[in-house]
């Protein structure tokens, strides 16, 4: 599964992109985040408040309860501030 992090999430985690093999139980972004938090202090800090974060699955806005599977591209980022 390909994961992408943007803006302050990228800074806190220390990388913008990685390919991971999460456990099968990580079948939604919420469950994936629970697993990511165990991977280090940067992850724990970046994902400390999930209400401050948006998620996209395969480049479309998604919900934290949507299903995800191995081949998906999952991106986490703060609310957008373009324009």
């Amino acid at each position: 599964m390909k994961l992408l992090y943007f803006a302050w999430l990228r800074q806190k985690i220390g990388l913008g992109e990685e390919t991971v093999s999460p456990p099968e139980s990580a079948s939604t972004p919420t469950a994936l985040v629970d697993w990511l938090r165990t991977r280090g202090d940067g992850y724990a800090l970046a994902f400390s408040d999930i209400s401050a974060i948006k998620v996209a699955i395969n480049q479309e806005f998604a919900s934290f309860d949507d299903p995800i599977s191995d081949g998906d591209e999952v991106a986490f980022f703060p609310p957008v501030t373009g324009g």
Binding site: F6, A7, W8, A56, F61, A75, F77, P78, P79, V80, T81, G82, G83
Partner: peptide, 22 residues
């Protein structure tokens, strides 16, 4: 565009760099 386009602004100010809040 303001809510759906995935861009993020960081500004370099005299108080340091900071991410712009939505």
């Amino acid at each position: 565009l303001k809510t759906d386009a995935p861009f993020w602004k960081v500004e370099d100010t005299d108080q340091g760099a900071r991410w712009v809040d939505s």
